[in-house]
């Protein structure tokens, strides 16, 4: 474990080598995805059609929205298990505040804004506990995973809120220029996060924190502030995911987003981000997301049932990391 971190930090010495390293990792993944697409196309002629692929974008959105900040967090060596619960809580808050027969009856826009604020607050609480009190991220978010889900159940009292106005569904079900509305949102966030991570001092600081937190501290990076910021960002994105999801399924339930954290983490690590921190990229995460979604969809279209599909996805996850590890080690051995 430590030797691989050392290996990686060796790589970090020059920016050029770092970029070459990342590029390779993503190229490998991209090739894997191409192979998968090729095989899946043989399985069903309905798979490689524009309609089908765009439609899959709807199912990918919520996971994608939380996987982007998750990439940031994992790069710093942290983890956020509470994203699914934050999504559930935000969905409930949205419905609870708007509910025309409920105690608040806020306008829908205000309810959405407030639920996003709650998302940020949840993330902020995670960040504060991690940074100011020093509880490790895994335990903090394991606790808030239970806490936020519990709050969602408590506030909702197991009641769903339904019958939103028709225009609200546009985000989750409508299209803009022939593309599902929410996919535009994902695209914007992908570009923003990719730029932040690779082109800003903030982004590069995240790698530094993941590689060597103490060193990052000594070199003047405000580690605490940055850490709190990315957890708050994660909360915000979970809130946005809730908004899109409620709009897509037209109801709010306290069990929404259950298990979302594992899907997001799977996409991030499949995308080549090291779970120990210090390396990874948004492009990798996007490829990871797309690969998993295409497998789910393509296998189903080829007549594989859901249980078989998740077996394949689990296997691909392990194999992909295995192959990538092997190639990376060979590559660094050659150099």
């Amino acid at each position: 474990m430590t030797s691989s971190t050392l290996q990686q930090s060796d790589e970090m010495k020059s920016g050029v080598r770092l970029r070459a390293f990342l590029l390779r990792q993503e190229v490998v993944l991209f090739l894997m995805m191409m192979i998968a697409i090729f095989i899946l196309t043989l399985g069903s002629d309905k798979f490689l059609t524009l309609d089908n692929l765009l439609n899959q974008g709807r199912f990918l959105t919520e996971i994608a929205l939380v996987a982007l900040p998750m990439t940031f967090i994992i790069i710093t060596g942290g983890i956020d298990l509470s994203v699914g619960s934050i999504m559930g809580l935000c969905a409930i808050v949205l419905g609870y505040m708007w509910n025309p027969t409920g105690p608040f009856q806020w306008p829908l826009e205000l309810a959405v804004a407030f639920s996003l604020l709650v998302g940020v607050l949840c993330g902020l609480v995670n960040g504060l506990i991690i940074v100011r009190i020093g509880v490790p991220p895994l335990i903090t978010t394991l606790a808030t995973l239970a806490l936020y889900r519990g709050l969602a159940e408590g506030i909702s009292q197991a009641r769903s809120v339904r019958n939103y106005p028709e225009y609200f569904y546009e985000l989750g079900q409508g299209t803009l220029l022939g593309v599902p509305t929410q996919l535009w949102m994902v695209l914007v966030f992908v570009i923003i996060t990719a730029i932040i991570l690779s082109r800003t001092i903030f982004g590069r600081s995240l790698y530094a924190i993941g590689n060597n937190e103490l060193g990052a501290r000594f070199s003047g990076i405000p580690v605490g502030l940055y850490t709190i910021m990315i957890y708050a960002f994660s909360g915000l994105m979970s809130g946005i995911a809730a908004w899109v999801f409620v709009s897509r399924v037209t109801t709010t339930r306290s069990d929404m987003g259950t298990g979302l954290e594992l899907d997001a983490i799977a996409a991030v690590v499949l995308g080549g981000t090291s779970i120990f921190g210090g390396s990874g990229s948004i492009v990798g995460t996007v490829i990871g997301l797309v690969l998993i979604q295409l497998l789910k969809n393509g296998l189903a279209l080829s007549g594989v049932t859901t249980d078989g599909t998740i077996v394949v996805i689990g296997t691909v996850l392990i194999l992909a990391i295995l192959i990538n590890n092997y190639i990376q080690r060979r590559a660094s051995a050659v150099e």
Partner: peptide
């Protein structure tokens, strides 16, 4: 073996195994 000798992080191995076992059980 996967964690110690092939150096795949344990969270990744067991995340993959989680879906393999869950799906395999139903199959």
């Amino acid at each position: 073996f996967l964690v110690a000798y092939l150096r795949i992080p344990s969270i990744v191995v067991t995340l993959g195994l989680l879906s393999i076992l869950k799906g395999g059980l139903i199959t």
